[in-house]
Write a protein that binds this DNA or RNA. Sequence first.
DNA 1: GAGCACTGC
Length: 718
Amino acid sequence: MAPGAKVVHFSNEDDDQFIIHDNKHASKRRRVQNGVHEREADQPNDRLESSRPKAPTQKQEKDLQRRKQELFEFRKNLPVFTARDQIIKGVQENETVVIVGETGSGKTTQIPQFLLECGIGSPGRGAIAVTQPRRVAATSLAKRVAEEVGTTLGYRVGYTVRFDDTSSQHTMIKYLTDGMLLRELLSDKLLLRYSVVMLDEAHERTLRTDMLFGMVKEIQQTRKEMVQRGEKNVCELKIVVMSATLDAEKFSEYFNGARIMYVSGRLFPVKVYNTIEPQSDYLDAALVTIFQIHMRRPKGDILVFLTGQEEIETLTALLTEYAGQLPSNVQALLPCPLFAALPPAQQQKVFEPAPHNTRKVVLATNIAETSITISGIRYVIDCGVAKVRGFNAKIGVESLLVHPISKSSARQRMGRAGREAAGFCYRLYTEPSFGSLEENTIPEIKRCNLAAAVLNLKAAGVNDVLHFDYMDRPSRTSLSRALEQLYSLSAIDDKGTLTQEGNQMAEFPLDPVFSKVLIQSQQYECTSEVISIISLLSVDSVFFTPPDKRDNVAEAKKRFVHPDGDHLTLLNVLKSYWEVKGDKEWCRENFINMRNIKIVLDVRNQLIQFCTRMGIVSSTSAGNETDNILKSFLSGFFQNTALLQPDGTYKSVVGGQTISIHPGSSMFGKRVEAIMYNELVFTTKQYVRGVSTVQGAWLPMAAPKYFGNSKLASTTTT
DNA sequence: GAGCACTGC
């Protein structure tokens, strides 16, 4: 099949009246970098040593002030700048304000500065916290705003993310991840160090932002009552919710009718086309559309939204093949894959400008919808679906399935074409299909396992999690399941109260199951190994798999295999890495993902620090007693076990479902009496990953409270 | 016999 043999027909393709989004001010303005460009922050040398930030020296001061002046020229042209006085007044007069502003309005960089300048944030009253769902955003925003304020990073302006804290007692504007603020809540239950909490990107509705909504709302009320009672050293807490979409009423309603303010953005008009007919094969439709654009439309790069790595690799291969057949008088076509598992060096390629006379085609997952911004994109192709993580609380199984996106997600994808100039968006579905999409994506809190979130709430003092003030309430089944799981781990007692062990578990930055394993490892005298393995399991993979080298990767993996399964195999990888002292060449030869190994080592160091603080000896080693390591894991993962059936399949002990070992596991194809697994996710089958051999006899020992022998007996018979 | 979107502490 030659590209162009088939044609995909789009509505209104030559009708300039059909413009969905039109900001008439936008095209007149010049694009200004507002410092939220993730690429810069993704450089490996991004990490700062946590030195004690000091006031700048006289010489530094001079440079800082010069830079500040330069930046002011940009700042005063930002749309939000004209609304400075109204915003200050709005926050002064209201305890909560909802601010709606599109990308490029400058709200995230400027509003904290306004609040600092007018004294709402001050050493006396408290600092300004600005939360972000992502680390890179928090760090790059802080760097930019420090420059704008004219201070060294970490002095008046800083950030706090996991493994990296540049804030100090002098910090008045602090950018932090929402997860980090949740952790601060454990030790500062009323967030007394802050006078303002700004929750940015609220429309994304991440699990953590949703938890913060409820907690800051309660804290605001408590602090107000304290002030009314005349308590000293307390001031009221201001809440600023910032959202990019127009669902502000929902936020306002939740926050007792909070004042809504709108800030204009800086997006250019994007013309939207829908297909006239539904497309049975969106991958094929995308391929044809790419060439239709390439042959007929003016310069500008193309961004294609697809669902996953496999699709992206398929389409990359097809594009490369057809691009080679283009006539010599047509400009070249350069496919650039982009997904999270791609090694950083290859991710970097999407940011490089296309060579002369070449059009770049970025084939991306949802990573390009929020996390990564690519310049030069004029055309977006949207297949209308995405892989979505789900959780069935009734049977306790996670899933990862392709699902139609929401209208707001489709608009977000569309907007990616209008960041620098007017653009075009080709939707590979009909207009009625668009009309039938859900308005908003279902918030994460309604579709994930809540065990960790519930434990976190309880540790922060919210005991009645069923009646907590959720903006979107998770189902009762989902909350009950979380409570049951915590009970089975002895994190809470039968009244739902946090136990001493549960309190300890909440301290660790881990899923409660892992915290349990870590604590239990003391009895099995293998804490050192357990910490390493937990760290290794906290990244997607310590290997990376280039699509053309799958066999070589499989070969490399074999070198580390431990007969008992993935847990000890992973440990072998880390041991080998240490033996060669992280030699780069060795990593390359063995397809070791250095970025992820770095994260593993960071997590490991952090866990050791937490252990030390809590009086757990982290150096205890199992030596050759590797069974003890597996027994430790079983003490947390006893529910994640399956038994071999006479027909050679595995059946889960809880739920009795037939499960398959993921092909990426070292246990793939092996038959043993019983297995324990790290996770079970339904994709095309019920796949388990992170699998090790266990003995059936260990099960009742691992969880005497949970296992009656009857339960075991009932699943072993077929 | 065959494969996981994206975040975060």
